[in-house]
């Protein structure tokens, strides 16, 4: 909760109510109606469903409206292993979500690749592509652990202020994250120079025989 007393009130909010109160109301209403995007990826999705079901029931937190459409969702629960084949779709979904939007990485796989990290077609953590707000460890996190993570997300929202964090009210648009392409391996368009450099460097290295365990 923002308790700062010396707040510089931005131009567009001059003459409005005291910003801390506004923040409080704004955050209170936001955090109590967080709608998750209905996208189950892997094992964790089953625990996510259990959390939505009668025993743990996350509608107590205003999260019961799982939206299959990203346009209506407030946060994205990455519930499981993100593979290279799936990540373009996830990035596209994230781009389609309306601000303010949040990402929760549920489980070891979504956070950092998990037990499948060494595999050739697994993205080692969704944070390589999307900004993650809360990480929930566990494999899979039990429903109570997931709820704990979601409460953490609410805490984070509570800590945000319109002035500093609400970049979605600024004039300039937020740029979408470029959707990666499936090449011989996943091509992240933001890293094109590095990919080029690595692919050419490999030739030199293997020719001079410097690189150990040369890649096929």
């Amino acid at each position: 909760m923002s308790n700062s007393t010396r707040v510089e009130i931005p131009d567009e909010l001059q003459g409005q109510v005291a910003i801390t109160t506004l923040d409080r109301i704004y955050n209170w209403s936001r955090r109590n109606s967080m709608w998750p995007l209905m996208s189950g990826l892997a094992c964790c999705a089953i625990e996510m469903i259990c959390t939505a079901a009668s025993r743990y029931d996350f509608s107590r937190f205003g999260m019961e409206v799982m939206r299959p459409s990203p346009r209506q969702a407030d946060f994205m629960l990455i519930s499981g292993t993100v593979t290279k084949k799936m990540v373009p779709q996830l990035v596209r979904l994230y781009n389609q979500m309306a601000e303010p939007k949040y990402v929760v990485a549920m489980g070891a796989c979504a956070s950092g690749g998990g037990p499948f990290k060494e595999g050739y077609s697994v993205v080692p953590g969704i944070d390589k592509f999307l900004p993650v707000d809360v990480y929930i460890p566990g494999c899979p996190p039990t429903p109570q652990a997931l709820l704990n993570g979601l409460i953490k997300l609410q805490e984070k929202i509570d800590g945000q202020t319109i002035k500093k964090d609400a970049h979605w009210y600024r004039k300039e648009p937020t740029l979408p994250i470029p959707v990666p392409i499936l090449g011989p391996d996943l091509i992240d368009l933001r890293n094109l120079p590095e990919i080029k450099a690595a692919a050419t460097a490999e030739i030199i290295d293997t020719e001079s025989g410097l690189r150990e365990g040369s890649h096929e």
């Binding site: 070891a108 956070s111 690749g113 990290k117 460890p137 652990a145 953490k152």
Partner: peptide, 28 residues
């Protein structure tokens, strides 16, 4: 972020030195 909570480490530790925790409230 790699751990798969399988519990094999605790199971095969001959010195009862590593055990599996109950604390699941560790989101960060």
């Amino acid at each position: 972020d790699l751990c798969m909570s399988c519990g094999l480490c605790a199971e095969y530790c001959p010195f009862d030195a590593i055990k599996m925790d109950h604390d699941y409230e560790i989101a960060s």
